[in-house]
Design a protein around this nucleic acid. Structure first.
Length: 423
RNA sequence: GGAGAAAUGGCAGAGUGGUCGAAUGCACUAGUCUUGAAAACUAGCGAGGGUCACACCUCCGGGGGUUCGAAUCCCUCUUUCUCCGCCA
């Protein structure tokens, strides 16, 4: 959520930046400023009515104490009008503040300077690529065929138990999945992230805190009986640890890593590109989350990118990094780098990580602040990234490491698997 | 799931209708003292809105109500604790 005060000061810059998202922000921001002005004016009027009524009440108290009940009841009549007035002003204030809040919830984050303009993923900017695209054997298979051939993932069984998009991993497939989780967590903790296990269901407030609500209401599974949401990413529970928190400056940086399953309804996204592991309703992901001082957050973002790079390098997977364009940028992000692994057998790139700086956008919703050197509260910056999303990494490994007589296990994973080949 | 108790500042803990945003202690910050540290002493020390700065306003788990006036009384929700039941 944007800060009204910043909108007041930088409206024109914001409008320019929103153009990169193909949004005309001028009317929206103007409305915010008008509502805010109305809010403050109403607040001021209400405050003065309350001040008067407060002082009358004090007087009445003193009068009663000194036995002048007659005079007191005279003053009481006065307070009745004030009460009526304050009630009205309060209703007005609440309505204005709600309208302002609703409006602010609808405004996405301001794209960072480096974000290219663009309308779709074709406008994303490739900034880096690495790794050899392997030459595959003649009858190379996509991962869903490999999964069947070696009996390591059973998609039909998942359909039977839950539905499409809920695969069942078996034998070496399950073990490889577990190996990847352990390997990612080990890499992250070695890089200084504290491992954490969090709830997989969150309440509504948490959904608002990180920005999944109200924007992506339909994306999450909602348990209506208890009004809880299945997490679409560990970002939600992990970042919400810091809701209503005021950090000391010396507590920066805060770094957490956590493994969770992720649940996404993916309503309406069916078609050729969602076969196999490409898009699931339930998948596993290891996430990294940072809370940073505003002056350090972009440095931290670069550090996260380097960290993910290192993992992919160790896995020896061919990948590229994209800087998302305004049109593809998530609602809450100021800058996002997507990592994509090349899926040889499908001949396409698969997104396996998304690393973002949200600046103060989430912090403002979360009320996540720190005390600066003057003892004033300032909003912190939040960041997060996948390291990594499991199914597509798995797809990439299966496809890129296939040979005529089985699937090789990447060297770094062999200690975690206790086998070096799926055959 | 049933019965009872509770929820106050970073923590502990007073406060049961009026100048209470809230005693006191601890912690913390600054200063005095000290060669230095500790101790002691002095001062400061919740958050938000508002203002050039004051003033002023709001917040004692959340929401609603009673009252001229609520941390204090009533209703409701949430959470925690104790006992019973159930259970991986």
């Amino acid at each position: 959520m944007l800060q009204v005060q910043v909108i007041r000061e930088q409206k024109d810059e914001m409008i320019a930046a929103f153009k990169k998202r193909n949004i005309d922000g001028s009317a929206l921001l103007e409305e915010v400023l008008q509502l805010d002005e109305k809010r403050r004016a109403t607040q001021t009027r209400l405050d003065s009515v309350l001040a008067e009524s407060n002082s009358l009440s004090k007087e009445i108290g003193i009068l009663y104490k000194s036995g002048k009940a007659q005079e007191a009841s005279g003053l009481k009549e006065k307070t009745a009008t004030l009460k009526e007035e304050s009630k009205q002003l309060n209703d007005e204030l609440t309505a204005t503040a709600d309208a302002l809040q609703t409006l602010l919830y609808q405004i996405p984050n301001v794209p960072h300077n480096s974000v290219p303009a663009g309308s779709s993923e074709t406008d994303n900017e490739e900034i880096f690529s690495e790794g050899e695209i392997p030459e595959l054997i003649n009858d190379a298979l996509p991962h869903w065929e490999l999964a069947k051939k070696y009996d390591i993932i059973d998609f039909e069984l998942g359909v039977k138990i839950a539905g499409a998009g809920f695969p069942v991993y078996k034998g070496k497939g399950a073990r490889l999945q577990r190996a990847l989780i352990a390997y990612f967590l080990d890499k992250n903790t070695a890089a200084g992230y504290t491992e954490i296990q969090v709830p997989h269901l969150v309440n509504e407030i948490s959904g608002y805190g990180t920005g999944q609500l109200p924007d992506k209401e339909g994306q999450m599974y909602h348990i209506t009986a208890d009004d809880l949401y299945l997490i679409p990413t560990a970002e939600v529970p992990v970042t919400n640890i810091f809701r209503d928190v005021i950090l000391n400056e010396n507590e920066f940086p805060v770094t957490y890593t956590g493994y969770t399953p992720c649940f996404r309804r993916e309503a309406g996204s069916y078609g050729a590109h969602v076969r196999g592991l490409n898009r699931l309703h339930q998948f596993d992901k290891v996430e990294i989350v940072r809370v940073e001082h505003p002056s350090k957050s972009y440095q931290a973002l670069d550090g996260m990118v380097d960290h993910v790079k290192e993992i992919l390098r160790e896995l020896k997977l061919p990948y590229r990094i994209l800087r998302l364009c305004g049109g593809d940028l998530g609602f809450t992000a100021a800058l996002t780098y997507d990592f994509e692994v090349f899926s040889t057998a499908q001949d396409r790139w698969l997104e396996i990580s998304s690393v973002s700086n949200f600046e103060t956008y989430q912090a403002n919703r979360l009320k996540l602040r720190y005390k600066d050197e003057n003892g004033k509260s300032q909003l912190a910056h939040t960041l997060n990234g996948s390291s990594l999303a499991l199914p597509r990494v798995l797809a990439g490994i299966l496809e890129n490491y296939q040979t005529a007589d089985g699937i090789q296990i990447p060297e770094v994973l062999i200690p975690y698997c206790d086998f070096d080949k799926i055959d």
